[in-house]
Write a protein that binds this DNA or RNA. Structure first.
Lengths: 136, 136
DNA sequence: ATAATTCCTATGATATAACTGGGAATAGCG
DNA sequence: CGCTATTCCCAGTTATATCATAGGAATTAT
């Protein structure tokens, strides 16, 4: 599995925030109830999104999270990478580090690289707004 | 990671068999030495490929494995699926079982389905012979 | 018979995923 | 000021998957 629950949940968080973007800061508690994801797990995911600058937070009472830009400017790829790290389909391609000693002679490497390009290209071409509008 | 060592090794086994297709049955011991993969691990992988009908085996002395068809007729997708099971990028799509109770209302599902189609389409379009020839 | 092989089942070791828990820091509100 | 709702931080836990390894039975050419 290339994308775990962490990434899928992150996507749902961003979508939820987009759907409630006119309500000021949205608390994780409310997202937790709507999305049926535990508050504690959401905290971890929100922290990743925050670190990546995809959301902004407000602490204290009446606090929560909101998007930092319009939904059209979020790509699925960017959200998943913020939550999951790299989206490489094989470890050979992870983080650009090509530590495999047989890389030079590996006849499968070009195939993996093309696959990786295909996956990232597609995920970066789909925006959150596309999904909200059902435009796929 | 979508493709683990099991799948990558399976690919290397098929490639190795293709490279030695004129030498009769090829033993796992020889593949093990060439590919630097433990014999015991190879046994598991070869068993999967055998069950899927991608290779045929001969037991006993002078035994081993050989391909059941020309290299051009093996796709990367078929080999990986034989070794790994499903290649779905998210568990939602695994094995066609869509047990997610929010599937009907899930606005991300069409995106995952397209991604899955893209990945499998590409992997099924590349043959072992393509890689051997460096035609990518 | 012997040696080389596949075949079968079980076990262990390590890593990753998927959460859970406790509590500190912050900020609005009465 | 005191209360409460929230994010923030870090650590611990459990479950599952990955990556093998181990031992031995069955088979077959020589």
């Amino acid at each position: 599995m290339m994308v775990s629950t962490k990434g899928r949940y992150a996507l749902r968080v961003i979508i939820d925030l987009a759907q409630h973007k006119d309500e000021g800061y949205v608390s994780l508690k409310s997202i937790s109830e709507r999305q049926k994801i535990s508050l504690k797990y959401l905290e971890m995911i929100a922290a990743s999104l925050n670190r990546a600058g995809l959301v902004q937070s407000q602490r204290g009472k009446e606090g929560g999270y909101m998007l930092t830009k319009p939904a059209a400017e979020y790509t699925v790829g960017a959200v998943l990478r913020a939550a999951e790290g790299d989206l490489a389909p094989v470890s050979c391609l992870d983080c650009g580090e090509n530590t495999c000693e047989r890389a030079d002679s590996c006849i499968t490497l070009p195939m993996w690289q093309r696959l990786d390009g295909l996956i990232n290209g597609y995920l970066d071409s789909v925006s959150i707004e596309d999904m909200l509008k059902g435009e796929l």
